[in-house]
Amino acid sequence: MSKKFTKDHEWISLEGDVATVGITDYAQAQLGDVVFVEVPEAGRQVAKGDDAAVVESVKAASEVYAPVSGEVVEGNDALEGNPALVNEDADDSGWFFKMKLADQGELDGLMDEAAYTAYVKELD
């Protein structure tokens, strides 16, 4: 499926019943050089809106919220040794975690790419 977006600048992309979550390219640019990422462990249950991960740049720290509810199945371990991946490739290899969704219907409340682009444009 195509990506969905939150107002907190996370993207989520569903394949089968597992979704991948990351932060948007806009978000990484706002943060600046990412220096540290903490991703959740597999098995953790998260509810929509919970703190799921942390991303830090030199001057800012930000929580990454679960865009939907579900169970974390994998954190992106590559980010631990190479947090710069978030800057270089936020949309793809810089993903944060994968999760099994509790209710796929929750995705309907999120923005599609066009809506998110318009949302970001408004912020600037």
């Binding site: 830090e56 740049s57 001057k59 800012a60 720290a61």
Partner: peptide, 12 residues
């Protein structure tokens, strides 16, 4: 590593 500190993290 100042993102641990109050001037950035505030209540966290």
């Amino acid at each position: 590593l100042s993102t641990r500190e109050q001037h950035i993290r505030r209540d966290k």
